[in-house]
Structures are given as structure tokens and as C-alpha cells.
């Protein structure tokens, strides 16, 4: 190779390398780069008890670093002989959206951009066609005459399309009927979001942000522990509460008692009584998802 062609080749190669470096430059701002531990984290179902302990420790450390408080993170298992169901009394619901905000506070959803698991539709009397519903009503006071309000959240289906379509089994149905997500396993393809007939799934389009003083330290691995950018999340019936025998946050905050929750395997539970005696219905029965979330009118 002569001197001239050597110089020319070097110049071309150098320019190429410089151009690639310039192209990659935005990566310098990559702040929330996941740890090696998180990268190598196994699927939830494959963790040994020892590995789960380490994972919980890692999550506590991360939360502490990011939010400055030591959380109480647990891996709560489903209880034996329990299958949860939810019923919502449309006669009582006044559309105040207290449930929406209690849910956000309880489950450590991102505040900016705000992610909400519950969507309340303001429906004109006389139809169940959701296209006629108003998602963004902002009236001075509720309820308004001539309308009823229909909150929609994850229906925890018996036959969940979201679970079927996930290419990596990052979401599944637990024995108590709750469909959960392994936030450390989800690849963020959003196929489940397309598959859900109830628009119940949410994606973290950017790194979630929660003010430090608003973090709920009572966390569960498959529940409300903080999520990262690029993964799915959704309502999980407040796993961190309900698997300890408490009610979900949305139910506790409801001022009208429109929300009912309990164990359908117990014939004497309130929920069993409602399912037996009220004229309940489910949304989009024709899609065959068999929801565990029921609606009823009281009058």
C-alpha cells in the first residue's frame, strides 16, 4: 500500500469512526442503566427462595437509592382456597374518581406522565355503547342528571388474552385469579396492550417519576413495587393489600360503597351473595374472556 492510499484509507476510516461516535452520543445520557443483577434476573417462577431474597434486597436497595426510603418489599403468595372477584354497583357510583387517585397513590404509579389503572366513563342513560361515553368529563360536581358512571379496570379474566399473547410469559394468572406481570421480565412489546379488550394495560413510555414523599413503602414483588421505563403494568387488585386480607385501595376510598370485593370460593362472602342474588353482567361477554369483574344495577 503506498503512502497516498494509506492516508486516504485512514482518513475514511477515521471519519467513519467519528460519525458512528457522533451517532451514539445520546447514550451518554443513559442514567437509569440497569444493574447487572437486574439484567441477569431470572423469571419470577424460576427464582429459588434464596434468589428471591436477593432480588427483594436488590429492589429495596434501588428504591432506597432512588426515593430515599427503605421499603418493605415482599413476595406475597396467593392464599389457599381464595379466588378473588370484584363487583361494581353502577347505581351507586357517582363518578367522583376517588378510586382512580387512591389507586395511583397506593400502587406507586408514575405521576409524570400520570399512569392510571382505572378509567371512569360518563355514560348517557340508555346505552352501554362505550363510544358514547365521555372519558374526560370535568364537571364542577358529580353526578350529573341523565348519566351513569362506569369505572373500568383490569377484569382479571379467567381466559385472559393478554397472557396468551405474551411472547415471553412475563404475565400470567395466579391461583387466586389475579393476572400479574413480572416487571423484570417484560420486554415491552405491548402485544398484551393490543390484545386486552378492556384497555386495562399501561406502558411506561418513559422512566416513571414519583415525588419522594408520595412513595408507598408497603410493596409486593408482583404488585406495586416501582417499575422502570419500557415495561407494562396494570391493576393487580392491590396484591400487596388483598393477599394480606385487606381490601383494595379503590374499594376503601369509595364514598358510596359502590365497590365490592371478596373471595368467591367462600359461599357466605359478600361477593358470592351479590353474584348469586343481583342481576350482574360483564363487559363484552361476547369476546369470551370470562371476567372476574362484574357490574350490576341495584334498582
Amino acid at each position: 500500500m503506498d503512502r497516498r492510499s494509506f492516508l486516504r484509507t485512514s482518513a475514511v476510516v477515521a471519519a467513519g469512526i467519528a460519525a458512528i461516535a457522533a451517532g451514539l452520543a445520546p447514550l451518554r445520557d443513559l442514567k437509569n442503566f440497569e444493574s447487572v443483577e437486574e439484567f441477569l434476573q431470572k423469571h419470577y417462577k424460576e427464582l429459588t427462595p434464596e434468589e428471591m431474597k436477593q432480588a427483594l434486597e436488590r429492589i429495596s436497595r434501588e428504591v432506597e437509592r432512588q426515593y430515599g426510603l427503605r421499603p418493605h418489599v415482599r413476595d406475597l403468595k396467593p392464599m389457599d382456597g381464595v379466588e378473588f372477584a370484584y363487583a361494581l354497583n353502577l347505581t351507586r357510583c357517582i363518578g367522583c374518581r376517588k378510586c382512580v387517585h387512591a389507586c395511583v397513590a397506593e400502587n406507586n404509579q408514575s405521576r409524570n406522565p400520570e399512569i392510571q389503572y382505572i378509567r371512569v366513563l360518563k355514560m348517557p342513560n340508555g346505552t352501554l355503547d362505550m363510544e358514547k361515553g365521555d372519558h374526560n368529563y370535568a364537571t364542577e360536581s358529580v353526578p350529573e342528571k341523565g348519566f351513569f358512571y362506569m369505572p373500568v379496570q383490569c377484569h382479571q379474566c379467567h381466559n385472559p388474552p393478554c397472557v396468551k399473547v405474551c411472547p415471553v410469559e412475563a404475565t400470567w394468572q395466579e391461583s387466586d385469579g389475579i393476572t400479574v406481570i413480572d416487571y423484570d421480565w417484560c420486554i415491552g412489546c405491548r402485544y398484551c396492550e393490543a390484545a386486552c379488550p378492556y384497555w386495562a394495560r399501561r406502558f411506561n413510555f418513559t422512566e416513571p417519576s414519583i415525588p419522594r414523599d408520595q412513595v408507598n413503602p408497603n410493596m409486593a414483588y408482583l404488585g406495586n413495587r416501582p417499575r422502570h421505563q419500557g415495561v407494562m403494568e396494570k391493576c393487580h387488585f392491590c396484591i400487596q393489600r388483598t393477599r394480606e386480607g385487606k381490601y383494595p385501595a379503590c374499594l376503601e376510598v369509595c364514598p358510596t360503597g359502590a365497590r365490592k370485593f371478596g373471595n368467591v370460593l367462600d359461599p357466605n362472602s359478600e361477593i358470592s351473595q351479590i353474584l348469586k342474588n343481583k342481576r350482574v353482567f360483564v363487559l363484552k361477554e361476547e369476546v369470551g374472556t370470562l371476567p372476574r369483574f362484574f357490574y350490576y344495577f341495584d334498582v
Binding site: L27, T206, Q229
Partner: peptide, 16 residues
């Protein structure tokens, strides 16, 4: 390279 640059931005900020 322009595309690569744009993808790097997306990796940092997310699909937002």
C-alpha cells in the same frame, strides 16, 4: 447514522 442517533435518543428517553 441519523437513524442510529435517533434510536439512541429513544433508548435514553423511552418510547415517549
Amino acid at each position: 447514522l441519523l437513524g442510529l442517533n435517533a434510536w439512541c435518543k429513544q433508548l435514553v428517553h423511552g418510547l415517549i
